[in-house]
Computed example of a mutant assay.
Amino acid sequence: MRYETRLYNALGVRLTAEHSLSTGQYEFMWFIGGWDGCGANDLAIAVGATSKGVDCMEAAGW
Score class of each variant (00 low, 15 high):
residue 44 A to M: 00
residue 7 L to I: 14
residue 54 V to D: 01
residue 43 L to S: 00
residue 37 G to Q: 08
residue 38 C to T: 03
residue 55 D to F: 02
residue 27 E to N: 12
residue 52 K to H: 07
residue 53 G to M: 09
residue 30 W to H: 09
residue 20 S to R: 04
residue 10 A to Q: 04
residue 46 A to S: 13
residue 4 E to L: 14
residue 57 M to Y: 01
residue 27 E to W: 01
residue 40 A to G: 04
residue 37 G to R: 05
residue 52 K to S: 12
residue 38 C to H: 03
residue 19 H to R: 07
residue 45 I to M: 05
residue 44 A to K: 00
residue 49 A to G: 05
residue 28 F to I: 10
residue 61 G to E: 11
residue 58 E to G: 07
residue 49 A to N: 02
residue 9 N to D: 15
residue 61 G to M: 01
residue 60 A to Y: 01
residue 10 A to I: 02
residue 60 A to E: 05
residue 10 A to F: 00
residue 19 H to A: 14
residue 13 V to S: 02
residue 7 L to V: 14
residue 14 R to A: 13
residue 26 Y to P: 14
residue 38 C to Q: 00
residue 62 W to A: 10
residue 50 T to R: 02
residue 58 E to V: 15
residue 39 G to V: 07
residue 22 S to V: 12
residue 60 A to C: 07
residue 17 A to L: 01
residue 19 H to Y: 08
residue 53 G to S: 09
residue 26 Y to M: 15
residue 31 F to Y: 05
residue 31 F to N: 04
residue 10 A to D: 07
residue 45 I to S: 13
residue 40 A to H: 06
residue 27 E to Y: 09
residue 23 T to Q: 08
residue 3 Y to T: 15
residue 49 A to F: 04
residue 37 G to N: 11
residue 47 V to H: 00
residue 18 E to I: 11
residue 44 A to T: 06
residue 22 S to H: 06
residue 33 G to N: 03
residue 28 F to S: 02
residue 8 Y to Q: 13
residue 49 A to S: 13
residue 5 T to L: 11
residue 32 I to G: 03
residue 41 N to F: 10
residue 49 A to L: 04
residue 38 C to G: 08
residue 19 H to K: 00
residue 33 G to M: 00
residue 40 A to L: 03
residue 20 S to W: 02
residue 54 V to T: 11
residue 42 D to H: 13
residue 8 Y to P: 11
residue 54 V to I: 15
residue 24 G to N: 10
residue 11 L to E: 13
residue 19 H to V: 10
residue 55 D to Q: 07
residue 35 W to R: 12
residue 18 E to T: 15
residue 51 S to N: 09
residue 26 Y to R: 09
